[in-house]
């Protein structure tokens, strides 16, 4: 897909998203759709570091939670508009990524993964003990009303998340197709070789970590608006960390479309199954899917598709 086509599709999706609230009456669709889009942003953000550069972030919820609480703080302190919240959250996320990266990226990937687990608990503990942010019981966030053009707050926040998703995918795609993406792929393949080729590996990893953190935190920013209530348990939820990892892995980590595919698939299934079956089985299903993909199709759906294409091509060539 060329840039022109990509932009065209993005515009079409955005337009469809804006029109949809006029057509669909039931706000539940937007309520559920918001979650799917939120995961598109999270998975896309995760993949910039985890997929392109090959550094596993288990602490996605730390970045997400930081975004949620940045927005909640801004609402409480200044009644800041949503755009300001999103930008501030992205900034905080980038900073957090930079600091975590600086502390741990100099050593091997396993330690980075462990440190990100630690980060979640540290931030959660800080929020727990902050009275201003509502401590363990959380904070009710009454956001400014939605612009009149939108049918309701849910529809509004859905459209905001749609725009964020398009921005996130655009960023990921731009990185993937540029020299930055190439350097990150080189790092994923072999760090010493990348370094010997003149790639400043530490700087590139830090950049990836910051961008990834910024995008994920951005996904958390509209949450206070969406849920009207934030608490540490949902902001730093393990499910977010799990999904952030599972979605790109299921979709495929090598290209921007993988996380999008994985997020839409997995999040939709989850939205349907939480209504129909228990949340335990939901987690079980994700766990089994994760194992199945990692063992049988480590390149995700994208890898499966590529393999299928190759096979078909070969069959054609032989006949």
């Amino acid at each position: 897909m060329s840039w022109r086509n990509f932009l065209l599709v993005a515009l079409l999706v955005a337009a469809a998203g804006m029109v949809l609230p006029r057509v669909l009456e039931n706000p539940y669709y937007f309520f559920a759709g918001y979650v799917v889009l939120q995961y598109v942003v999270i998975a896309t953000g995760w993949n910039i570091l985890g997929g392109y550069a090959g550094y596993t972030n288990f602490g996605t919820s730390a970045f997400f939670g930081a975004g949620v609480y940045t927005a909640a703080f801004l609402i409480k302190a200044f009644e800041a508009p949503l755009l300001v919240q999103v930008l501030a959250a992205a900034g905080i996320g980038m900073l957090l990524g930079l600091v975590t990266g600086y502390l741990t990226l100099r050593i091997q990937g396993v330690y980075f993964a462990i440190a990100t687990v630690a980060l979640v608990v540290v931030l959660e503990t800080v929020v727990h003990n902050s009275d201003y942010l509502g401590g363990a019981s959380g904070l009710t966030t009454i956001a400014p009303p939605a612009p009149a053009w939108f049918a309701g707050p849910t529809q509004y926040v859905f459209c905001v998340m749609l725009v964020l998703a398009l921005v996130a995918v655009g960023i990921a795609r731009a990185i993937e197709h540029s020299w930055v993406g190439r350097s990150l792929r080189a790092i994923r393949a072999s760090e010493p070789a990348a370094e010997a080729c003149g790639v400043p590996t530490l700087r590139m990893k830090l950049a990836a970590c910051a961008i990834s953190g910024g995008v994920i935190a951005m996904a958390g920013a509209p949450y206070p608006y969406y849920a009207s209530h934030v608490d540490p348990l949902s902001a730093f939820s393990l499910t977010i960390g799990l999904n952030a990892l599972a979605m790109p892995l299921i979709g495929g980590t090598r290209s921007w479309i993988g996380p999008v595919l994985g997020a839409v698939l997995l999040a939709s299934v989850q939205q349907i199954t939480t209504v129909t079956i228990s949340s335990e089985f939901n987690i079980l299903a994700v766990g089994l899917m994760l194992i199945a993909f990692v063992v049988l199709a480590p390149e995700g759906i994208l890898g499966l598709v590529a393999e299928l294409r190759e096979r078909v091509g070969r069959r054609r060539a032989t006949t």
């Binding site: 288990f58 990937g109 892995l249 987690i283 194992i291």
Partner: peptide
């Protein structure tokens, strides 16, 4: 010969969820 960190971490993550459930 392809035990990279991400994949084995993910495998064990999945196993831990299954044990819990």
């Amino acid at each position: 010969g392809r035990g990279n960190t991400l994949q084995s971490l993910t495998l064990f993550f999945g196993v831990s969820l299954i044990v819990e459930i």
